[in-house]
Amino acid sequence: MRDKNVFAFSRALPRMSWSPQNLYNLWQRCFTGKLSDSQFERTAKTLFQQRWISKRLVRAYHGDHINEKIFKKWYLPSTLPEVIPKKSAKHDDTSTLAKWARRQDDVDRIEKLRQEENNTALAPVGSLMFAEVERRIDVFVFRCCFAHSVYEARRLVIHGNVHLNGVLHTNANTRLAPGDMVSVDPSAIRFLQYPESWKKNEDMGSTSQSETATTNKESVPLNGQESQEIPVSEASELSLSSNSELQTNADADASSVKNEAPQSKSEIPPGQPWLYNKSLTPFVLPDYAAPFIFIPAYIEPSFSTCSAVYVRHPTARPGYSEIPTPYDADGEVVRLAWEWYAKRRPRMRSRRQLAQMPEDRQKL
């Protein structure tokens, strides 16, 4: 099982998941001692160790369910633009010579050029190394908020709960093309199902109501006197008029209750979770979902039909990257990870290897 023990607290590797354990690991990477593992400004680690640690971190989040050899062969782009900003040459003493010659104008000009160079940010193209992973249909289903994790999204595809352009699709390795529409069976989406605890309370409530109804049939009060046991046929005749009034009042109460939707789970009475929103589709968010509910810009979802369209490929511009990642899109971790893969590219692919390539709809 590939997703077994992926939320180990000792490793604290963030994954594509909304589970509370993953949120705790993300908190460890951001605010605890685990943060120092990905900061290499002052470290005794070698360059090889820095690159390997960076590769391990980004691969844990971006497609850890993909085999490493398959990722390097089919999901890693061949080239990327330079992600390291150009800096002044080493031992450049132009500014020092200008100060020694007391040419203050030259000193100010050199400092201004350096400041402009530092302020001019390049596009975080390093994060685009995972653009092919974002095109996978299982990752796409997770980004659309139709699944709690990428592992669950993969199972939805394999088990036949996902349609691609209206046709049943069970290959989770397929890469989408712009314009493809993906639909998910609503009965397989956990957001649209009541939790099991609510259903158990409902069953218990319905059982108690049936017992109460049976008791009421056996004893019927007569004109405010003490209740006595009478046959069911006589009881029905005596209470016919009163039942009609009670039914009218019950219908009025039910209509008023039906129009009122609960604001939270606490307002739903125990044993009757279906009473308030029988006419509505239930939508139950997972715990701690607030930091994760977002839709990337290259996805156009329709939650009323449980479908989404892959509009275009993800892009990047200075200071902005459309690929979601828990790390800085133009940070040192992503750069070192790209340097790791840049030195370990797969060999030239033969025709036999090209025949084993996963489905890529962009090239059809």
Results as ranks from 00 to 15, higher is better:
K112F: 10
W340M: 06
I84N: 00
N243L: 08
K55V: 08
F140I: 13
N118H: 06
Y341H: 14
Q272V: 11
Y24S: 07
L275P: 02
H91M: 08
F71M: 05
W27Y: 15
Q39I: 15
E196D: 14
A235W: 02
P221M: 06
F294R: 08
R29M: 08
T315Y: 00
E260Y: 08
N118T: 11
V311W: 02
E134H: 02
P178Q: 01
K265P: 03
L176R: 04
T305S: 13
D185C: 06
S241I: 13
H148E: 12
R2F: 10
H65K: 00
T120V: 13
N223H: 09
K73P: 05
N67C: 09
Y288T: 12
R2M: 12
A131I: 03
E116V: 12
T96Q: 04
Q263K: 14
V157T: 01
F303I: 07
V334G: 02
L364Q: 15
E359K: 15
D328G: 12
F142S: 05
W74C: 06
N161D: 04
V182Q: 01
F7N: 10
A12G: 00
P346K: 14
N216T: 10
Q247W: 05
T120D: 08
M181G: 05
T325P: 02
A123W: 07
S88C: 09
T325C: 11
F146C: 04
W274M: 11
R175I: 04
Q104H: 13
V257Y: 12
L238S: 03
S350K: 09
Q115N: 11
P318Q: 02
N22A: 08
P270L: 11
S208C: 09
T79D: 09
A12R: 00
N165M: 06
L164R: 03
H169Q: 10
R190I: 14
I299K: 01
Y276F: 10
Q39G: 14
L156M: 08
I189C: 05
L246V: 14
F294T: 06
Q39W: 15
R42V: 06
P286Y: 05
F130A: 03
L80E: 01
P282R: 02
W27M: 13
A316H: 04
I295C: 10
P286R: 08
T315F: 06
E260F: 07
N243P: 00
E332R: 11
V139E: 02
N243K: 07
L192A: 11
Q272H: 12
K69D: 09
